[in-house]
């Protein structure tokens, strides 16, 4: 279906000669963008409907007084579907801690929420295949579970700003939504996300079509291939201060992979960019003492680096 449309657009509407280099590139571009936008629209729509059942207020109740480990697993999984924006990180953190969600469990949520979500899933799936997408999502969840669990084990509650514990949080009714309201929410949300990410997707796909000719294919392979042990930690450290969502980092991920950086190193870079950022740390400084921020960042850097090595060995 899609290929018929792509063929029609390329060879009939734009009248490009079949078999020419330009024709191939344009055909590839139309086909791939359509495929990814359709996948994005469908999957975001369905995830948004699931999401309406888990507003942060509900997630908080589910996680409150959960045992460690089980709580970490649940938090990391809920992080996939719960809407999260780094500007809400502080109210979410306080709301969680105040209602009795253990600190480590809260961190599992804070790590998983920006790093693994349906947008990352679709983009990786569309650009690199479902295997890579599944590996990214499952190890992302694993990193969130383990890092949160370790932070919990360290008993760092004293490194949270004191006022957080004294805070009186008002009770807010969770309004129950009608089916129509859920569908409306899902439609609005899908539109909003598509508006936000379309440009990045177009850039990533154009790179895919045109980058081949310009830089030598294995430009990065010598420096950042599997054999270079420093490649993974370096990629992770470079990614730490950078701030981007999953969509924004995709064009870079594509270019790096295309130019010979190994899969594990690239995925580790993507995790580090989405999970950690300078703006988020500045925002979290409102509730965490600097020492806890440092511990949080270090544990994540180590966990993501190990994940990167693991991929490079396995893949």
């Amino acid at each position: 279906m899609l290929d018929v449309f792509a063929d029609y657009m390329t060879y009939q509407v734009f009248e490009i000669t079949k078999g020419s280099k330009l024709g191939d590139a344009v055909n590839f571009f139309i086909y791939d963008s359509l495929k990814i936008f359709i996948m994005l629209a469908i999957i975001i729509f369905f995830v948004s409907i699931i999401r309406t059942y888990f507003p942060p207020e509900r997630t908080k109740q589910l996680l409150s007084h959960k045992r460690e480990f089980l709580g970490n697993i649940l938090a990391a999984l809920l992080g996939i579907v719960t809407p999260f924006c780094s500007c809400s990180a502080v109210p979410v953190f306080i709301g969680f801690v105040e209602s009795g969600v253990p600190l480590g469990v809260t961190f599992s949520f804070l790590i998983s929420s920006p790093m693994v979500n349906e947008v990352a899933l679709v983009l990786l799936w569309g650009m690199f295949g479902w295997k890579i997408a599944m590996i990214y999502i499952s190890t992302g969840v694993l990193v969130a579970i383990i890092s949160g669990y370790i932070i919990g084990k360290f008993k760092l509650e004293h490194l949270v700003e004191e006022y957080v514990y004294q805070m009186k949080v008002g009770q807010n009714e969770i309004e129950s939504m009608t089916v129509a309201a859920r569908l409306q929410y899902a439609k609005d949300y899908t539109k909003e996300i598509l508006r936000k990410v379309w440009l990045y997707v177009v850039i990533a796909i154009s790179l895919g079509g045109f980058i081949h000719g310009y830089a030598p294919q294995d430009f990065l392979a010598d420096y950042a291939g599997k054999d270079n042990l420093f490649a993974v930690p370096l990629a992770v450290l470079v990614g730490v201060p950078l701030y981007s969502n999953a969509a924004g980092v995709i064009p870079i991920v594509y270019a790096l992979m295309e130019k010979g950086m190994s899969m594990g190193t690239v995925l580790a870079f993507m995790m580090s960019v989405t999970a950690l950022s300078l703006p988020e740390m500045i925002i979290l400084r409102n509730v965490l003492k600097p020492k806890l921020i440092a511990i949080f960042v270090s544990i994540l850097v180590v966990a993501i680096t190990l994940t990167g090595y693991m991929f490079n060995i396995v893949l």
Binding site: I94, G95, G170
Partner: peptide
């Protein structure tokens, strides 16, 4: 101010 915000029990801004 975050304290004022939390008084309303709001978790997403």
């Amino acid at each position: 101010n975050i304290k004022e915000i939390m008084k309303y029990g709001v978790m997403s801004t």
